[in-house]
Design a protein around this nucleic acid. Structure first.
Lengths: 217, 217
DNA sequence: CAGGGCAATATTGTTGACAAAATAAGCGAC
DNA sequence: GTCGCTTATTTTGTCAACAATATTGCCCTG
């Protein structure tokens, strides 16, 4: 999977289909017909095939024998499960980040935080939620915990279609920003326990917001 | 993947290769040549190929373009990471199990516990560690948390080659049994927090034992 | 016109052959 | 004997054809 040299077709297929699912070009429940994808991306059917197997293992796709594959649709309940699992793993990552982070790493986190504040001032909600994701990814990266990182990345991908909604919950951006501040602060202090706790609180907040947003429609 | 009707070749390939890795027929670092596996299992190369892609996504196999696949070897450090991630996720599962478990479920756990005590009395260490795994799996099942269940299953598979060693650490079986008792007790009482805590303590204990066993050789 | 079976179509699963790349073997120079 | 190069061999990646299964549309019966 480490692939900077010369991407094999299956690898690019994996990346492109994954992107398409994450950005919403391919919608939940949508059928993923091998021939169609093959033509759309100008890749062989075999490549598409193994990419789909990977994506299924990752939880982004479902399939049944002789009936093809489709984008996995995640119910509200499942989205909450995913967030709960993320809570467990990202708390772990935050703890490690607090214990390992270098001054440069902390500076990166603080810079992202400042940008988030700026976006919020502009009322750019989409920009905020992108920076949100970036902050989380950076914390995981600083943690150096590769095992957690892999799992978290898969979970985040599964949740994207639900999560963007939480930003629309009244008062959520403010609270979210405050929660992120506490996380970064704890990491800056090197206080692992506080960082883990703050991360858990934050994701609990996201879960609450999602419940409210989910009921709302 | 739900497949009781008529397994496709890729599915059986996935299962059989996975089993072979878990039971040690295929050893860490061992090359997984497609043609060989194809002949050994009497399955098409395409099936082997997609199975390997799945197993790589799961973390049991590694591969590089045009250089094939091999059984992923997990270092001591990585094994500890895996246990840490399991700690996070299985604590979550234990909490849910405590809140959801029916009397029947609790009875199942207690029965497993009694069998473990029996095996210990016989000095059957291998039997103990199998029951150990069964107890953990049962707790996860009772939790009803499918998301956590999938991740935990993958993590457990990654760790098997290391974990069997911990049973050999002096005094470990006794302590382990006591830790398991506390977990089951908390679940029986319906005390989610205590169950999560007990599970975390238990896996911390496993990590300690593994560190000691790892240094020992 | 509703429902049930039957043929036509679409799609996936499987097989084999070929191309591309990496690995191993052989050879020569020093 | 060893290093470096060139040439086989092995192995993976890709492609196209065929088989197996599911799905759809159609006709027929009542």
């Amino acid at each position: 999977m480490p692939t900077l040299e010369k991407a094999t077709e299956a690898q690019t297929a994996y990346r492109r289909i994954r992107e398409a699912i994450l950005e919403g070009t391919l919608l939940p429940r949508q059928r993923l017909v091998e021939k169609e994808l093959s033509e759309r991306f100008s890749l062989g059917r075999a490549a598409i095939r193994t990419a789909l197997a990977r994506l299924e293992q990752e939880g982004l796709v479902e399939s049944a024998p002789y009936r093809g594959a489709w984008v996995r649709a995640i119910s509200l309940e499942e989205a909450l499960e995913v967030l709960e699992a993320r809570m467990a793993l990202e708390s772990l990552a935050a703890r490690h980040a607090a214990l390992r982070a270098t001054p440069e790493g902390v500076a990166r986190l603080q810079a992202i935080l400042r940008e988030m504040e700026a976006k919020k001032a502009e009322g750019d909600l989409l920009g905020m939620s992108e920076l949100n994701a970036l902050l989380h990814r950076t914390i995981v990266e600083l943690s150096g915990h590769k095992t957690a990182a892999r799992l978290i990345e898969a979970l985040r991908a599964q949740g994207v279609r639900h999560q963007y909604r939480t930003v629309l919950v009244p008062g959520r951006p403010d609270r979210s920003l405050e929660e992120h501040r506490r996380i970064v602060e704890a990491i800056a202090k090197g206080d692992g326990e506080a960082a883990a706790q703050a991360m858990a609180e934050h994701l609990k907040g996201v879960m609450e917001a999602l419940k409210r947003a989910g009921e709302g429609r």
